[in-house]
């Protein structure tokens, strides 16, 4: 089980030619709590720049943490240093968005896949080669691929190589940062299904970071919606899609097109005004109040905390109940989103 408590990642803004002065901070992640039970998938969604990728990197300690704890099973990742951290990283692996940039162009596939094995001495001698074949089989690549170089493969094949590399470390948790958004739609489904199969076989825990709501819905058990460095709503996947409560989630879901012109016409569209505010200078109170159609005085002053609406469904909004009532009043019943 992965537990993230009050995670904060602030990147200092420095100025000065010789002596750097810190003149501010980009609050990329500003107080995130996450819990992912073993062998389940949490989908983390949000628009570009909301800090969702930084959360993934922070869990692996690839960016310095400003505050907060990350615990995986009994291992407190956020407390480890140097050699301990290096060894512990094996338990958490990452799959990257860009299948072109995430593979070293000068390593052949065998070398890419064996790197985690050799680094952590998981296998020795002939067993290494055996393991490479196993991994290639399990991600659906021909064994002949081992001697090939990344540029000889297509995007989807490269993503499979990336997955094989992640599996080679025998991790428990896999952080998939936009694993399919660089792929053709037809290939996306293959890779997502591969991830689902591997989870079933190996009991993996996933943190799936994506802006693609359909992909997240397909594979996630729980979905967390992030806005400007904080989580605004988290719920079991079906609940989030059928009964969203936070106005930001409502807006996100209403932007997903429905392939039915009748439904599409009758939908209640919520179009967000303006851009994502700068995380270097976030709005006071509720981060979303500058773009929220339901914002009131209190939203500017008091930052809402995640609170339970019903078991497993948490929302960070002062007026979630009122908004739900007002929407069903104007629409006269079910909201089609």
């Amino acid at each position: 089980m992965l537990q993230v408590r009050n995670l904060q990642v602030h990147f200092p803004i420095k100025k000065g030619l010789v002596f750097d002065r810190t003149v501010g901070a980009v609050r990329a992640v500003d107080g995130v709590d996450l819990t992912i039970p073993r062998s389940t998938t949490l989908g983390l969604v949000g628009e570009s720049g909301c800090g969702k990728s930084t959360v993934g990197k922070a869990i692996l300690r690839l960016v310095p943490l400003t505050a907060g704890t990350v615990t995986f099973d009994n291992l407190e990742l956020s407390a480890l240093q140097n050699e301990e951290l290096r060894k512990a990283r094996r338990h958490v692996q990452m799959i990257f968005q860009d299948p072109y940039a995430s593979l070293n162009p000068r390593q052949n596939v065998e070398s890419i896949i064996t790197e985690p094995i050799r680094t952590h001495q998981l296998r020795t001698g002939a067993a290494v080669h055996q393991r490479v074949n196993e991994l290639l089989d399990s991600v659906g690549l021909p064994r002949g691929a081992a001697s090939r170089y990344p540029h000889e493969f297509s995007g989807g094949q490269r993503q499979r190589i990336g997955i094989a590399r992640a599996l080679a470390a025998e991790p428990d948790l896999i952080i998939a940062d936009e694993p399919v958004s660089a792929l053709d739609v037809s290939i996306q489904a293959q890779v997502i299904n591969l991830l689902a199969d591997l989870q079933e076989q190996l009991g993996l825990t996933y943190l799936l970071i994506s802006h693609d709501l359909a992909v997240v819905r397909h594979i996630s058990d729980t979905v967390a919606v992030m806005y400007l460095g904080a989580i605004v709503e988290t719920a079991p996947a079906e609940t989030l899609y059928t009964n969203p409560q936070h106005p930001y989630t409502l807006a996100l879901l209403s932007a997903v097109p429905v392939p039915d012109p009748v439904v599409e016409d009758s939908r209640h569209r919520m179009v967000l005004q303006g851009d994502l505010p700068s995380p270097a200078n976030p709005p006071s109170g509720c981060r979303f109040h500058t773009r929220c159609a339901y914002a009131q005085r209190r939203c500017e002053q008091e930052r809402p905390v995640l609170r339970d609406l019903e078991p497993g469904h948490q929302v960070a909004c002062h007026f979630a109940e009122e908004i739900a009532v007002s929407i069903s009043a104007t629409r006269g019943g079910d909201v089609v989103l």
Binding site: M94, S102, E115
Partner: peptide, 14 residues
């Protein structure tokens, strides 16, 4: 800055 270096770091390469 590239992902394959990030990836090697997260693998635990020295």
């Amino acid at each position: 800055q590239k992902d394959y270096v990030t990836s090697a770091t997260s693998v635990g390469v020295r």
